[in-house]
Write a protein that binds this DNA or RNA. Structure first.
Length: 841
RNA sequence: GGGCGAGUGGCGGAAUUGGUAGACGCGCACGGUUCAGGUCCGUGUCCUCGAAAGAGGGUGAAGGUUCAAGUCCUUUCUCGCCCA
C-alpha cells in the first residue's frame, strides 16, 4: 500500500524513492538486515588481521521452549560487549550452541508421546530463529548441540580421560534420590533437602554409582579463586561450598576388652577435655554390629530412616529434645583424660559427614549442648570466654548456661593446656595427638565427590561395561560414541535406556566375554563442563579440540551468565579444566578469567514463569517495537547485575527516543548544508559530544550500558538545542554519527540502516570514536561558592584560576556576600575549578 | 544464628569515589502543533514557605569524624542472597 508523500521536511530528507522510510519503522528495516548477517556469515570469526584475540562466551541456552526474557537480557548484555570489542580492535570468538540433553525433554516426551530428540530440536530451531531476529552477533559456524553424537562422543572421551587419570570412582554410598525425577542427584542439586529441579523431597538411598573425584582438586579450586576476576559473592559462595576446615582426626577406643576403636573428625580438638559423651551416626557399622541383637535399636533405626537429613541436622529445639538419641550398651574412652564416657547413637550425626562419629562437647557446640541438656549429661566448662580483643568475660557456669559458647576464650580445666588461647591450644593438641599416636591434624572439605550417574536416558551414556570376570571396564576410545538407540520406548516408567532390549548387550573389551553396558547416562552438567573447548573446533571428528587452539584461546576472557550457576556449573567447569590440564590437554588453570552475572527479569516482584502465567516474552516486545527497542529497553532499565522488574520499564519510551534518533538523522546533519551557527554554539555542541565520547567509552568498559544510553540521549538533546540555536552542518553530523557509532552495539539495526544511508558502509565495521581532548578545554568554569558548607552561589572564573582570584570573585557574589557579612572568615577551602568554601564564625 | 549485598522523588535509576543530591528516562501537569494518532515540539515536576529572589528541610533510623558525608566510622531497623 502506498502512503501519500507528505510535503514536509521529513520526506525531503529521505534518500530512496520509498516514502515509507521517512517514518521509523523497525519492523520493516530489521528483518532484512538480520537475514543478511546470517546469510553472509558476517560474524564468523576472522583472525586474519592482527587484532587482539578475545574469547567472549555466554552461557549456552537450554532449549526448553522459545527464548525467555532472561535470555534476551543476557544476550543483550553479551552482544553489546562483543560488538563494542570488535569496534575497539578485537578479533572476538563469539560462539553459540545448545545445552540440549536433560530431563525436561524426557518428561515432555513421556507426557506427550513425542521423541525428546524432536522436541529438543524443534525448540532449538525456534530459539535460533529468535536469536537471529534479535540481531545477536554469534558466529553460527561454531554451532553445537550437546545431544549430537558428534558432541557426546567427546563427552564420553573425557569421561575415559578422567577414568585413566584415576579421577573416576565407582562407590556405594547413601545418595540423594529424587522420586519425581526417578534418578539420583549430585549434592549440588539438592537445595534445602529438595530437588532443585522438581522440588520433591530428596530421599537417601544406598546405591553404587559413578563419581568424579572433584575433591582431589578441592585445595586448588579454593586457592585459584584468588586468581580470577569474578564477582566476590560468587567466589564466596564457592568458598563456602568447598568449605575447607582445619582440625584433627582422633581415635577413641571402646571401653571394653575388644580392640575396637573409632576415629572422629573435629574442627575443635582444643575442646577435647570437655568431651563428656560420644555420638555415632545411627547407621555406623560398628554400632550396627554391636547392636544387632537389640530389638529396641532396630526400632530406633526404623524411626530415624523416616526423617530427612534436614530434620536430622536441625537444631533440636524444645519440642523433641528427648527423642533424638539412643543410649548404646557400651562406652568410649577419651584419650586425653582417660575417662570413660557414655556412647550414644543420635540422628544429628550423619554417616557421610566426617567419619560418622563425633566427640560431643556440650560446652562448645550447640547441638551437643542441647542433646546433653535433654539427656542430663554433664556440661563441662573447658574455656573461659573472652571478647575479640582477648579480655576475659564472665566465666561460664555449667548449671545455668543456656547455650554453648562458640566464641573465643582461654583454656581452663584442660590440664597442661590451661591458660592458652583457644587457637594456641588447638595447635598444641593437634601436635600432641600426632606425637602420642592418637591421630593426626587434617584438613577437611565440605565438598563431596561429584556423583555423575543418572538413571535417565536423554543424556550421554556412561562408556563403561560390566564384565562378570573383569569387573567394570572402560569402552575403548576408538569405539566411541556409545550411541543412544533411536528406538527407545520413552513411555516406560523408570529409565528407557535400562528397559531397552539390546542396548546393554555387549562384550567385554578386555576378555571378550559377554558383558553388560552401563545403562546410566551422565549428569548434564558434564556436557556443559567443557563446551567452551569444543567451540574451538566443533566439527573436528578426529579430536575433541586442538591443543594449540586451546592454548591460544583459553581461558575465556569474559564469561556472561546467570548467578544461578554460581556453584554447580562454574565449579564443575573449573574442575574439568584442571583435570584436563593435568592430562596435558589444555594449558590453562582456569576456564573463565572474568565473569559477569546479570540480574533476573521479573514481573511485579515475582519470577516470570509459565505456571504463574506472568510471562512477558521477548517476541511480544520485538514484534511490536522491534529488536532494537527490546535490547535498548533492557539495557537502559538498570545496571547488568541488577534485577529488572518488567512492570517498571518502558519499551515505548525507548522506542520514542529511537524514533527521534531516526528523525534527526534524516532531517539534520546534511553535509551539503553549509556550516552554520555562532562559533560558541558550535564549540558547545562539539564539547558536549566529545565529553560524552569519553564518558560513554568508560561506561562500556565497565558494562554500564544504562548510563551509556543516558549520555547518548544527552547528545541527542544537545543536538536539538544546538539546531534550535542555528547550528548546522558538520558539527551536527559529528554529533549524530557519534550517537550512531556508540549506539551500534546496543541497537545494531537502526544504527546500521542510518549509517549505511549516510555513509554507505556498515556501522559495525567502524572504529570506536575517539574524543578530541583539545575540544574539551574550556575558558571559564563555574565554581560553587559555599559558606559554612552550604551552597550560596556560583561564580564563573577562568579555568585553572588560583585561589585568590576565585576568592575575590566569590566574595563579590551578592548572595554569598550576605552570608559572609554575618561573621569573620576563619578559613577558606579551595578545590580548583570546583568549589570554594568559606568557614565563617 | 553466621557471612555477603542493598535501602536515594510517584517509578526505574544517576552522582568524576568525600566537593552543586536527584543525570537520563518513565509517569504526571500545563501550553503549542497536529487532530488518522499509543503523533510531534516546548515548559514544569524532591518536600515546605514564597509572586519571585531566596530560605529551611531532605539519600531507612540514631549518633560520630570532617570546612564539607548518599559516599567514611559506630549502633540499629528492613529487604535480598548464600551458608548453617
Amino acid at each position: 500500500m502506498l502512503i501519500p508523500m507528505s510535503p514536509d521536511a521529513h520526506a525531503d530528507a529521505t534518500t530512496g524513492p520509498d516514502a515509507s522510510v521517512a517514518r521509523y519503522d523497525p519492523l520493516a528495516i530489521e528483518p532484512p538486515i538480520a537475514s543478511r548477517w546470517v546469510d553472509e556469515g558476517t560474524y564468523e570469526l576472522d583472525c586474519a588481521g592482527d587484532d587482539e584475540r578475545f574469547y567472549a562466551l555466554t552461557m549456552f541456552p537450554y532449549p526448553s521452549g522459545d527464548l525467555h526474557m532472561g535470555h534476551a537480557e543476557i544476550f543483550s548484555i553479551h552482544d553489546a560487549l562483543v560488538r563494542h570489542l570488535r569496534m575497539t580492535g578485537h578479533a572476538v570468538l563469539n560462539p553459540i550452541g545448545w545445552d540440549a540433553f536433560g530431563l525436561p525433554a524426557e518428561n515432555a516426551a513421556r507426557k506427550r508421546g513425542e521423541n525428546p530428540d524432536e522436541w529438543t530440536r524443534a525448540n532449538i530451531e525456534e530459539q535460533a530463529a529468535s536469536i537471529r531476529r534479535l540481531g545477536f552477533s554469534f558466529d553460527w559456524s561454531t554451532r553445537l548441540h550437546t545431544c549430537d553424537p558428534e558432541y557426546y562422543r567427546w563427552t564420553q572421551w573425557i569421561f575415559l580421560e578422567l577414568f585413566h587419570a584415576g579421577l573416576v570412582d565407582r562407590k556405594e554410598g547413601l545418595v540423594n534420590w529424587c522420586p519425581g525425577c526417578e534418578t539420583v542427584l549430585a549434592n549440588e542439586q539438592v537445595v534445602d533437602g529438595r530437588c532443585e529441579r522438581s522440588d520433591d523431597l530428596v530421599q537417601r538411598r544406598p546405591l553404587t554409582q559413578w563419581y568424579f573425584r572433584i575433591t582431589d582438586y578441592a585445595e586448588e579450586l579454593l586457592d585459584d579463586l584468588d586468581t580470577i576476576d569474578w564477582p566476590d559473592r560468587v567466589k564466596s559462595m564457592q568458598r563456602n561450598w568447598i568449605g575447607r576446615s582445619e582440625g584433627a582426626e582422633i581415635t577413641f577406643e571402646v571401653a571394653d576388652d575388644s580392640d575396637d576403636e573409632v576415629v572422629v573428625y573435629t574442627t575443635r580438638p582444643d575442646t577435647i577435655f570437655g568431651a563428656t559423651y560420644f555420638v555415632f551416626a545411627p547407621e555406623h557399622p560398628l554400632v550396627l554390629a554391636r547392636m544387632a541383637d537389640d530389638p529396641g535399636y532396630a526400632d530406633y533405626l526404623e524411626e530415624v530412616s523416616r526423617r530427612s537429613d534436614i530434620e536430622r541436622q536441625a537444631t533440636l529445639g524444645e519440642d523433641r529434645r528427648d527423642k533424638r538419641g539412643h543410649r548404646l550398651d557400651f562406652d568410649m574412652v577419651n584419650p586425653f583424660t582417660g575417662e570413660t564416657i557414655p556412647a550414644f547413637a543420635a540422628d544429628y550425626v550423619l554417616m557421610d559427614y566426617g567419619t560418622g562419629a563425633i566427640m560431643a562437647v556440650p560446652v562448645g557446640d550447640q547441638r551437643d549442648f542441647e542433646f546433653a541438656r535433654a539427656n542430663d549429661l554433664e556440661v563441662r566448662v573447658i574455656i573461659h570466654p573472652t571478647d575479640d580483643e582477648g579480655n576475659h568475660l564472665d566465666p561460664l557456669d555449667p548449671d545455668t548456661m543456656e547455650e554453648a559458647w562458640v566464641g573465643p576464650g582461654t583454656m581452663v580445666g584442660s590440664g597442661e593446656y590451661d591458660g592458652m588461647p583457644w587457637q594456641e591450644a588447638k595447635a598444641a593438641i593437634i601436635d600432641d595427638v600426632a606425637d602420642k599416636g592418637w591421630g593426626r591434624g587434617t584438613v577437611n572439605f565440605r565438598l563431596r565427590d561429584w556423583l555423575i550417574s543418572r538413571q535417565r536416558s536423554w543424556g550421554a551414556p556412561i562408556p563403561m561395561v560390566h564384565c562378570a570376570s573383569c569387573g567394570p571396564r572402560p569402552v575403548p576410545a576408538d569405539q566411541l560414541p556409545v550411541e543412544l538407540p533411536d528406538d527407545l520406548d520413552w513411555t516406560v516408567s523408570g529409565s528407557p535406556l535400562a528397559a531397552h532390549p539390546t542396548f546393554a548387550e555387549t562384550t567385554c573389551p578386555d576378555c571378550g566375554g559377554p558383558a553388560r553396558r552401563d545403562t546410566d547416562t551422565m549428569d548434564t552438567f558434564v556436557d556443559s563442563s567443557w563446551y567452551f573447548l569444543r567451540y574451538l573446533s566443533p566439527t573436528d571428528d578426529t579430536r575433541a579440540w586442538p591443543r594449540e587452539k586451546a592454548g591460544a584461546w583459553l581461558p575465556v576472557d569474559q564469561y556472561t551468565g546467570g548467578v544461578e550457576h554460581a556453584i554447580l556449573h562454574l565449579l564443575y567447569a573449573r574442575f574439568f579444566v584442571k583435570a584436563l590440564r593435568d592430562r596435558g590437554h589444555v594449558a590453562a588453570d582456569e576456564p573463565f578469567q572474568a565473569l559477569l552475572n546479570q540480574g533476573q527479569v521479573i514481573l511485579d516482584g515475582s519470577r516470570m514463569s509459565k505456571s504463574r502465567g506472568n510471562l512477558v516474552r521477548p517476541g511480544d516486545v520485538s514484534e511490536e517495537y522491534g529488536a532494537d527497542t527490546l535490547r535498548g529497553t533492557i539495557l537502559f532499565a538498570s545496571a547488568p547485575e541488577d534485577d529488572i522488574d518488567w512492570a517498571d520499564v518502558s519499551p515505548s519510551g525507548m522506542n520514542k527516543w529511537l524514533a527521534r534518533v531516526w528523525r534527526l538523522n534524516l532531517e539534520l546533519g546534511d553535509a551539503e548544508v553549509a556550516d552554520g551557527g555562532a562559533d560558541v554554539d558550535v564549540a558547545e555542541l562539539r564539547r558536549a559530544v566529545h565529553q560524552r565520547i569519553l564518558a560513554v567509552s568508560d561506561d562500556y568498559d565497565q558494562f554500564k550500558y544504562n548510563t551509556a544510553i543516558a549520555k547518548l540521549m544527552e547528545i541527542t538533546n544537545a543536538t536539538m538545542d544546538a539546531e534550535r540555536a542555528g547550528v548546522a552542518g558538520g558539527a551536527v553530523r559529528e554529533a549524530l554519527d557519534a550517537v550512531l557509532l556508540m549506539l551500534a552495539p546496543i541497537c545494531p539495526f537502526i544504527t546500521e540502516e542510518l549509517w549505511q544511508r549516510r555513509h554507505g558502509a556498515s556501522v559495525h565495521d567502524q572504529a570506536w570514536p575517539r574524543a578530541d581532548e583539545s575540544l574539551l578545554e574550556v575558558d571559564t568554569v563555574d565554581v560553587i561558592v559555599q559558606v559554612n558548607g552550604k551552597v550560596r552561589g556560583k561564580v564563573a572564573v577562568a579555568s585553572g584560576a588560583d585561589e585568590s582570584v576565585v576568592e575575590a570573585a566569590a566574595m563579590a557574589d551578592d548572595n554569598a556576600a550576605r552570608f559572609l557579612a554575618e561573621g569573620e572568615v576563619r578559613k577558606v577551602i579551595h578545590v580548583p575549578d570546583r568549589l570554594v568554601n568559606f568557614v565563617v564564625a
